[in-house]
Computed example of a mutant assay.
Amino acid sequence: MSEMDLLYRKAMLQDSLEIARLSGQLGYPAKAEQIEARLAPMLNAADHVQGKRIGQQLVRHCEEWARTKGYQELRVRVNVTREEAHQFYKHAGFENTKTQQVFRKGL
């Protein structure tokens, strides 16, 4: 399988609906308005593009960008239920440094 050419660009406000959809698909439900309020970089690829090495390209691009900015490391947060993502990041050279659970009690 050949690598796809990708265009990297900064997210724009008009992307917020699609980013919210992707976020929900990845297990982090959000409304477009929330995304608009806190537009953040996304490293995960959607289901329809998984297996096409896009995630690997994104990680390499982020590594290159971070190095040019003087960063010493990359950190990624992944939902505990996303085993495939855990394997992806381990394969990409990341190490798991923390496991976290969030507890909630309705009133």
Rank of each mutant, 00 (worst) to 15 (best):
D15K: 08
Q14F: 14
D47N: 02
L43P: 15
Y71H: 07
V102S: 04
L7A: 03
R38P: 00
N79F: 09
L74D: 08
K69N: 05
K98L: 13
A37H: 10
L6R: 08
M42T: 04
T99E: 14
C62S: 11
Q87V: 06
R104T: 02
V59W: 01
K52E: 06
G70D: 12
V80G: 08
L107N: 09
R9V: 10
V78A: 11
D47M: 02
A37Y: 06
E3S: 14
E33T: 10
L22S: 00
R53C: 04
L22V: 01
G55F: 00
V78D: 14
D5Y: 11
R104F: 00
G51V: 03
E95R: 06
K98H: 09
H48K: 14
L58F: 07
Q100K: 02
V59T: 10
E83L: 11
Q57R: 07
R75S: 11
E33Q: 13
Q25F: 01
G27F: 03
M42V: 07
V78H: 14
P29I: 01
V76G: 11
P29Q: 02
Q25D: 07
Q57M: 06
Q72M: 10
Y8H: 09
H61S: 10
Q50L: 12
P41A: 14
K31Y: 13
A92I: 06
M1Q: 06
R67F: 01
S23K: 03
E3F: 13
L43Y: 07
Y89P: 12
M4R: 15
Q14W: 14
E95M: 04
A66Y: 06
A11C: 11
M12I: 04
R82T: 00
A66R: 01
S16N: 05
E63Q: 10
A20W: 10
A66E: 05
T97I: 12
A85S: 15
Q57K: 09
H91Y: 05
M4G: 06
L26V: 08
G51Q: 09
Q101A: 11
E33P: 04
